[in-house]
Computed example of a mutant assay.
Amino acid sequence: MLKVMFSAKPAAWEEYRETLMTAFDAEGLDVDLSRDHDPAEVDYIVFAPNGPVSDFRPYTKTKAVLSLWAGVETVVGNETLTQPLLRMVDHGLTAGMVEWVVGHTLRHHLGMDAHITQQDGVWRDTVYPPIAAQRTVTILGIGALGAACGQALHGLGFPVRGWSRTPKQIENIECFSGDDGLRDTLSGAEVVILLLPDTPDTRHVLNAETLGLLARGGFVINPGRGPLIDDDSLLAALDRGQVAHATLDVFDVEPLPKDHPFWSHPNVTVTPHIASTTRADTASQVIAQQIKRGERGEPFLHVVDRQAGY
């Protein structure tokens, strides 16, 4: 019998306990799932950074640590973690992110705020958008989530550009990479969506210089990571009209402090890190499938590159 350790906050245990066992049963896995196994006997750890495990050295038998979160920046630098660390790539999480990104992109593209938020009796029939084919969307970060969002936006008719640190080729997305590619993909951008991981190389990828490359009156949408944007530079760009509106789901400090100027800025929408969350039912299926691969001697999927940080 496999011993699987669940290391996350207590509320998550109540949410995941039954769905994980159902998924293990569906994959034909004989599993003893617990929050308090003897570390020396644990085969796999289902992990969230807010759980009790932070020192992985006692887990000498553990074959892999399976993250419940898509982001791994809070654990990837843990020197005690020598076991393979697997990112959560979950079709439920992906679907949620695609829906959030497409919804907010269309909101800005269609100019909904001009009509919906100003119920003042003024007939604003001069405010209308171009068609999607006339507005290019730029996605910084074209991994699993970014590529899925790009395909959905392409399906609606938007030309889509995508940037990554290393070269990629993705159908329906014009791909750029490297420092020069970042400038090229941001130059004249009207809608910029951030889905990069949080690494030293991506910190403040949107700053005073790069925000200045956008088309005047462009839109910024960030469901990725808070440190991708220099807050002061974004506020300055909003105040001078270089950026028309920013929709932000993630922040340097969360919850966003009550005195942060984003709360009161008329051209900022704050959402409370809900662009997409891990769904217990679909995530449990992914975890069970990864463990089954491990038990069959097959390579794990979505193994984190420790040097790259994701």
Rank of each mutant, 00 (worst) to 15 (best):
S284R: 11
V220K: 02
D32G: 15
L228D: 00
V127L: 04
A147K: 07
G77T: 02
P255V: 13
F47E: 01
A70H: 07
P49H: 02
R165F: 12
R296K: 15
I274A: 14
Y59G: 02
I193P: 01
S164V: 08
L2E: 04
T202A: 12
V31W: 06
V192Q: 02
E171S: 11
L85K: 06
V76Y: 02
A64I: 13
E14Q: 15
A11Q: 10
P223R: 11
V286S: 07
I170A: 05
Q119M: 11
A280K: 13
T271W: 03
P272K: 13
L68Y: 03
T277V: 15
T60L: 06
L228I: 10
V76H: 00
T94Y: 04
L68G: 04
M1I: 15
I142T: 10
V160W: 07
D125Y: 15
G141A: 13
S284P: 06
Q83E: 00
A237P: 01
A147S: 14
G71D: 01
Q290N: 13
V89W: 08
V65K: 00
K258Y: 12
P272E: 02
H245F: 13
V31Q: 10
D179V: 15
P10L: 10
V53T: 02
L228V: 10
V101S: 04
A288F: 07
L33D: 05
D259M: 14
T269Q: 01
N172Y: 09
A40F: 08
Y59Q: 04
F176H: 08
I45E: 00
G162Q: 00
W123M: 11
A215N: 04
R135K: 11
G77W: 02
P130E: 01
H154V: 12
A48V: 09
T105P: 03
D55F: 09
D180T: 06
L256S: 11
L66Y: 07
F262Y: 15
H204G: 05
A64S: 11
G28N: 11
P261E: 04
A48M: 09
S284L: 08
V102I: 11
D281W: 13
R203V: 14
G51I: 05
V286K: 10
P223L: 08
I173D: 00
Q134I: 13
G121L: 07
R87Q: 10
T74V: 05
L33N: 09
G226W: 04
E174P: 02
D305M: 10
D113Q: 03
D30T: 15
R216G: 09
Q307W: 08
A148H: 07
Y16V: 10
L194M: 05
P130K: 11
I170Q: 01
T19F: 09
H273A: 11
T117W: 06
N267H: 08
I274S: 12
N207T: 08
V268T: 10
G178V: 14
E15S: 14
T136G: 06
D120F: 14
V286I: 12
D259Y: 15
E14W: 09
A11W: 12
R107A: 09
T80M: 03
P129T: 07
I173E: 00
T136Y: 05
T80I: 08
L234F: 08
P255D: 03
R203F: 10
A215Y: 03
P49K: 05
H37G: 04
D90T: 08
K258M: 15
D281G: 15
A26V: 14
P261M: 12
P255H: 08
